[in-house]
Design a protein around this nucleic acid. Structure first.
Lengths: 187, 187
DNA sequence: GCACCTGATGTCAGTCACTGTCATCGCGTA
DNA sequence: TACGCGATGACAGTGACTGACATCAGGTGC
């Protein structure tokens, strides 16, 4: 792999998050990020498609979520399948509250970054719908369930990250899933 | 208002949709759009913040949806309030299937445009949550309901636009809302 | 030990989205 | 008729992103 200084990708990602946080996303040029990482602007774009992607590439969220859905018990109820996915997603944030908070503050401060985050979540919903169809869930139930599951994740993540202390994300997600059930039941 | 040729904004929007459709979004330069509309590139950016916004500005979707939610009967069930919003949203697409299809084909063909669409829907969800809170719905129910309502709209719109013939969007949305109820009830 | 291959990086020129600034133009108004 | 004002044009500049080509370091085959 690395014949030069190793971990060029990671160095770029760390420099980007630091600079975006310190001086703002718009005020940071790609050339600055590359220089901090000891590379050139051209090399940045060989590792990341654009200035936004450096904050999003490499997250295992989708894979964890989808795998959990695919591997849930074949006879599990639909809501429990979603819950298993949410549990798996919650796991990847354990012990990372401070990092996630720092990153999320940057993302929320800039429309371009929020847009990128939303399309990642949309891709997650699409992948989830596929996993549900593979389990035999018909359309439009699969897509509707996937979109709803992602909506629960969005709300839960938002609440988890706003908490003063790091809490366990999984029960929070389960609680929202239950609340959704009450809403849909007309309560 | 217009002391020069009137409807500069509309001319720009029409030229943009036509060119994006004919030769692709990336292959179209803002200078081309402006020239087609008899204006300059600089004037384009006085009417629209960027090359993407020209396809999204001016849509009354959010206002219609939110107003319907705000004006629903005070004692209406939560799901019926969302349903009223979906009905109002459906109304604005009546008779516009062909136009919507043309526009959607362009949007779906380019990630930058899909991102912009997603952030518009996220803004809709935020506004809906506010309208629900104004009705006395507590958090996190308000946000969860709003996100779920938008998810239903996304799925319904997708299905409506894929239909060969223009159908009535409202019953489609109502059907999805009912299906969501069955999912959340654990069926 | 040497020539060669290969993948990661550097260099450079170029396009285009987007912005700030100032000039200009056409209409309404005093 | 002179003036004000909002919409537009002209122009220079920045920075994201791309394509083409050179270079460099390490592994490979001999």
């Amino acid at each position: 792999m690395g014949r030069w200084e190793p971990n060029a990708r990671q160095r770029l990602a760390e420099a980007a998050l630091r600079l975006y946080g310190e001086q703002g996303y718009e005020q940071t040029t790609v050339a600055q990020i590359a220089r901090q990482a000891g590379l050139t602007e051209r090399t940045f774009f060989r590792h990341y498609a654009d200035k936004r992607e450096v904050l999003f590439a490499g997250s295992p969220l989708q894979e964890l979520f989808v795998t959990a859905v695919a591997e849930a018990a074949p006879d599990a109820a639909l809501l429990d399948v979603v819950g298993a996915g949410l549990d798996a997603a919650s796991g990847m944030f354990r012990g990372r509250h401070e990092y996630a908070l720092r990153r999320q503050a940057v993302v929320e401060a800039h429309q371009e970054l929020r847009e990128r985050e939303l399309i990642k979540l949309a891709a997650l919903a699409t992948a989830l719908a596929g996993a549900l169809r593979d389990r035999g869930v018909p359309e439009p139930t699969a897509t509707l369930t996937a979109e709803t599951g992602v909506a629960v994740f969005k709300v839960g993540f938002e609440r988890w990250i706003r908490a003063a202390e790091e809490t366990d994300m999984a029960p929070l997600m389960r609680g929202l899933l239950a609340e959704l059930g009450r809403v849909a039941a007309g309560a």
